[in-house]
Nucleic acid binder design. Structure first.
Length: 818
RNA sequence: GCGGGCAUGGCGGAACUGGCAGACGCGCUAGACUUAGGAUCUAGUGGAUUCUUCCGUGGAGGUUCAAAUCCUCUUGCCCGCACCA
């Protein structure tokens, strides 16, 4: 019979679904395993990246289940977001309708892939039974002082018509639509993620199961730096100018101060000086430039004396105050001390404007002088021109001077972070409304818990004006204050969708709970996620927000885990012709087509076989055909071997039996280790292919029934996590009544692996010259003897003198000769 | 500029702690079966070659009996951050 994948896949998908084969509940008798793949945004169609992501996860889930774990493997929808709203504007379709239709399509596609999800746990973030709890968490954060409203310069995406968090801006462009980001001063809601900066950084150490790359990216993003914040005093006005520096050891080398153009003191200090007008012009000029070009490393440093002087607190020296493009208002205190001799940026600036260069750190082996320096000296050395600190090693001086400043009350040792608070307001409709009311009398009032969810009204006018459409919906906007009953208005912004995805993995543990976001028992049983799988594009965004959430929830006593995701696998991209698949390049291969033409098992096997999961994968139509051929080969092999299982004409050949048994157990070992230790599915599949090749060669040989059966059953079981349908069908055909996916994972017998004769390599001067077969337990001396008496070796050694021989038992002999 | 990754046949990729480079698959070549096959099966397939060797893991050195693997330098590509004080 032909391998009819279409019939087979449909048959089993239906059966698995009706029998609820993948339903899971808490079970204290088994170890739990939570296998999670990043849930998709329901764009309408599955792409190859999804297929890869979910195939990888499915192998892990199925394997762990067979290995005896109680496996939670859920799926859901990250369903709030801009595309739905844009589609609504474009096609006059309501976002909720658009989203639901997409979900329905994508759910069908996922089901066609034969993934082992417990669909009873499906969650959808745009449904009120979910976003009620998203709002509830907002209130929790508000209660804990972690949600606050602040007026500040924020990132504005003109194309998405909303503000964005820092993490959502890449190289000055919107992460979603690549439009250039503008700066706007607005009052917005923030989460105090900076309160957790240090824990987010420190706890990365608790994540040995995460890729180094991702941890490093988070580390850099958090950007911790230790230093001193000290104040200079403005000469005339006596204003304190706070300056952050990581190099207090160079304090005697300060020859000027630079304030960011937006620094409030710039205007104040220049007032009434001859520079006043010039400063105003400079500021205007800076404002016109966008953030990216102004702060780019390539942009030339540009600055202006503001007409005022400051006093260096350590030596009372009078130094000029400047403003310049290269100082950023939103890092540190928005002001820096200029030390041209020991900072390259300051050096360039000082050279350009003829400012003093004072050497205060001297290298140990030579001396430098400010006259002929061509660049700043940023390396270590000892202090000079630094009063009582002269001669000190500068690395020590950092601490010594820091302590001195604290004692003298001119500065504080301080830690600065690059990380900023998470801006969560969005001026868009399709998101969870922020559960806040503004009362004329009481001010900001959180919505009482019992009034949740704040329902998103469905009858709404879409027209992106840069304000939320909710603002024009009176029945939503106008409300009563829960405190005083007086007239009040609702917050009309919605929450960043990353808020919805920061807690969805808890909800899977208890998806239908109407009283709580999740019950304590269930969340404690399942969390943390044992294996999380998804794209590296979330290395900072989703993964850091979720870690932050977890820590807040832990502090609130809602969960017990320190970290939500114990192990993380970031899968590589799916490429075609070396490029990422994308509509604009026109190199997209649709999963639908592939499933239609070859079936889901083929698609899965190809994708898992073509590259290790963490590497990029080059799509190959020929490769897909290869995977298809392989499955057909398995189909024929099982048919043929099974046919011959009963008729044992002739005595079974012991040697063939042993070989078949050996390959069976060898394959069990290899596949188990490849999945378990390294997620190397490509080599696991190649081992199964090798086994199939050996079995093929033995079809016409006399194998005993037991050995044949053992080989066949194990072959199907080993292949079942990769190709669940064909293996299930063949399993039934060889007479099994219980699903293959409920079988225990096989164990291998070390004894069977042992070969009586092994081949060893004989090298002369490190080059292979001969191979010989020897008994497996041969001693070192015997090996050496046999090597030396080998004809080919003798031939090679004819005119040479043996210097020494190296014997690696069971592997090789290397004869060193001259 | 800083941080990280990668580089192996015609192609995707193997080679775990230094010990047979190129497993497995694709492609290619030949043969078998066949009315025919772009199906299937079998065999071969890194390069050069005086058929015996030689050369081969981006490049140049080094350590070692032995290096794709370890060290130093270097080139190219990819990713993240980017005047972070």
């Amino acid at each position: 019979m032909k391998y009819d994948f279409k019939m087979i896949e449909q048959k089993w998908q239906k059966k698995w679904e009706t029998e609820k084969l993948y339903k899971v509940t808490e079970d204290s008798s088994k170890p739990k395993y939570y296998c999670l793949e990043m849930f998709p945004y329901p764009s309408g169609k599955l792409h190859m990246g999804h297929v890869r992501n979910y195939s990888i996860g499915d192998v892990v889930a199925r394997y762990k289940k067979m290995a005896g774990y109680n496996v939670l493997h859920p799926m859901g929808w990250d369903a709030f977001g801009l595309p739905a709203e844009n589609a609504a504007i474009l096609h006059k379709l309501h976002p909720s309708k658009w989203t639901r239709e997409n979900i329905s399509n994508m759910r069908d596609q996922l089901k066609q892939l034969g993934l082992s999800y417990d669909w009873d746990r499906e969650i959808t973030t745009c449904e009120p039974d979910y976003y009620k709890w998203t709002q509830w968490f907002f209130l929790k954060l508000y209660e804990r002082g972690l949600a606050y409203r602040k007026r500040s310069m924020v990132n504005w995406c003109p194309s998405c018509a909303t503000v964005l968090a820092n993490e959502q801006v890449k190289e000055g462009r919107c992460d979603r639509c690549s439009a250039e980001i503008e700066k706007k001063e607005l009052e917005q809601w923030f989460f105090k993620i900076t309160n957790y900066a240090d824990r987010l950084l420190q706890d990365l150490k608790k994540l040995p199961g995460w890729p180094e790359k991702v941890k490093l990216m988070q580390e850099n993003w958090i950007g911790r730096s230790e230093g001193v914040e000290l104040s200079f005093t403005a000469e005339k006005t006596k204003d304190e100018i706070a300056v952050f520096t990581t190099r207090p050891d160079t304090i005697y080398g300060v020859s000027y101060l630079v304030l960011a153009p937006e620094h409030p003191l710039v205007e104040k200090l220049s007032k009434g000086t001859r520079q006043e007008q010039a400063v105003k012009d400079f500021k205007k000029k800076m404002q016109k430039l966008n953030e990216i070009t102004r702060t780019s490393t390539e942009t030339e440093k540009e600055g202006l004396f503001i007409g005022a002087y400051a006093i260096n607190p350590i030596n009372k020296e009078r130094i000029p105050i400047w403003t310049a493009n290269y100082v950023l208002m939103d890092y540190g205190s928005g002001a820096v001390m200029g030390v041209p001799a020991h900072d390259q940026r300051d050096f360039e600036f000082a050279k350009k404007y003829g400012l003093d260069i004072k050497v205060v750190i001297s290298p140990k082996d030579r001396s430098i002088n400010s006259q002929n320096m061509t660049q700043a000296y940023e390396d270590n050395g000892f202090l000079i021109n630094s009063d009582k600190f002269n001669g000190l090693d500068n690395e020590k001086a950092i601490k010594v001077i820091g302590d001195y400043m604290e004692k003298a009350k001119i500065g504080n040792v301080k830690v600065n972070y690059k990380l900023r608070d998470w801006l969560i307001s969005r001026q868009r409709y399709w998101g969870a409304p922020i559960p806040i009311i503004y009362c004329e009398k009481c001010g900001i009032v959180p919505i009482p818990e019992e009034d949740l969810p704040v329902m998103l009204p469905s009858d709404i006018e879409f027209n992106p004006k840069g304000t939320s459409p909710l603002l024009y919906c009176d029945e939503f906007l106008k409300t009563k204050c829960p405190n005083c009953g007086g007239p009040a208005k609702r917050e009309t912004d919605t929450m960043d969708t990353f808020m919805c995805s920061s807690w969805y993995f808890y909800r899977y543990t208890d998806p239908k709970n109407t009283k709580q976001p999740f019950s304590e028992d269930k969340v404690n049983y399942w969390m943390p996620v044992d294996q999380y799988i998804g794209g590296v594009e979330h290395a900072i965004l989703h993964l850091m927000y979720s870690r932050f959430f977890n820590k807040v929830l832990k502090d609130a006593g809602l969960v017990k885990t320190d970290e939500p995701f114990k192990n993380l696998l970031t899968q590589g991209m799916v490429l075609k012709d070396g490029l990422k698949m994308s509509k604009s390049v026109g190199n997209v291969v649709s999963p639908e087509e592939i499933i239609e033409k070859y079936g889901a098992d083929t698609a899965r096997v190809f994708i898992l076989f073509a590259a290790p999961p963490d590497k990029d994968l080059e799509w190959s139509d020929k490769g897909v055909e290869g995977a298809y051929r392989f499955l057909q080969r398995v189909w024929r092999l099982v048919e043929q071997l099974d046919d011959k299982r009963s008729d044992n004409n002739g005595k079974p050949c012991e040697e063939v039996d042993r070989e078949v048994r050996r390959v069976t157990h060898k394959t069990i070992k290899k596949v188990t280790e490849d999945i378990e230790e390294r997620f190397n599915f490509n080599t696991a599949i190649s081992a199964i292919m090798e086994m199939v090749n050996v079995l093929y060669a033995s079809i016409d040989k006399n194998i005993s029934k037991v050995v044949k059966t053992e080989a066949l059953e194990n072959l199907l079981i080993l292949l079942s996590p990769f190709a669940p349908h064909i293996t299930e069908e063949l399993w039934e055909r060889i007479g099994k009544t219980q699903s293959i996916h409920l079988m225990p994972w096989p164990e291998y017998d070390e004894e069977v692996l042992i070969e009586d004769e092994i081949e060893i390599v004989i090298q002369v001067n490190g080059k292979v010259r001969s191979r010989i077969n020897v008994q497996r337990n041969i001693g070192k001396q015997d090996m050496e003897q046999m090597a030396l008496s080998d004809d080919k070796v003798k031939d090679f050694l004819k005119d040479m003198k043996i210097v020494k021989t190296i014997v690696i038992p069971g592997k090789l002999v290397n004869i060193v000769a001259k």
